[in-house]
Design a protein around this nucleic acid. Structure first.
Length: 200
DNA sequence: CTAGTGATCCGCT
DNA sequence: GCGGATCACTAGA
């Protein structure tokens, strides 16, 4: 059994090594449960970003907005999208190497009523099907930027080991124009809680 | 089903 | 000024 003791030098949360390359982390996060103050669900869709490719917020260098991406792994990077939505990434690699995984969709499992309140919507399928919707359903805002993922209000729960791991599919990332060919989007095969279908 | 559009912030060219 | 790692809503095929 692995200890849950916080240790910034071995950034393991829910059994995932956040110092690994972001596509590997993005793949492993499928099936992990993400809760904020006990509200959330199973991660069913992610995207990886890395400073070495043009779609990454850190591609053009460090600035005030993306500074957290350059920090230590195992922390939350929260940014404002299109001036309206809050989206959350998990920071990967190591201090100075900007990389992260965007949480694009959850299968709601915990405190759906709380998420319904925040989203003003009943249908479970649409509560967390997209990065902006995840942010709204979990009550994320700028104050979460830079928080560590191994302490309150965050909980990351590894997938149950007594069941087969989810089947994972991959494809090109959504909504970007640069480095659009990289297959760095990951999702649970057949999930009805994805932001969009994966091409067959 | 697809296509088009407005909302609204902020760092960059 | 420009343009996004988006969403909700509308109109039309």
């Amino acid at each position: 059994m692995r200890t849950a003791k916080p240790n910034p030098h071995a950034p393991l949360v829910a059994g995932i090594d956040f110092s690994a390359p972001s596509p590997q982390v993005a793949r492993q996060l499928i099936g992990v449960t993400l809760l904020i103050d006990g509200v959330g669900g199973r991660i069913v869709e992610t995207e990886a970003y890395d400073v070495g490719e043009g779609a990454c917020h850190a591609f053009a260098g460090r600035n005030e907005r993306n500074a957290t991406l350059f920090g230590p792994p195992g922390h939350a990077y929260v940014y404002r999208s299109y001036g309206i939505h809050w989206c959350i990434n998990f920071v990967c690699r190591e201090e100075g190497h900007a990389a992260g995984v965007l949480i694009r969709a959850l299968e709601p499992t915990h405190q759906l009523d709380r998420m319904r309140e925040r989203r003003g919507l009943d249908e479970a399928r649409l509560l967390c099907a997209g990065p902006g919707r995840v942010g709204q359903a979990l009550g994320i805002d700028r104050s979460f930027d830079g928080m560590r993922l191994d302490a309150a209000p965050f909980s990351l729960l590894a997938p149950p080991r007594d069941r087969p791991p989810p089947a994972v599919v991959r494809g090109p990332r959504i909504g970007i124009t640069k480095a659009a060919a990289l297959p760095w989007r990951f999702g649970e095969k057949g999930s009805r809680f994805l932001s969009r279908r994966f091409a067959p």
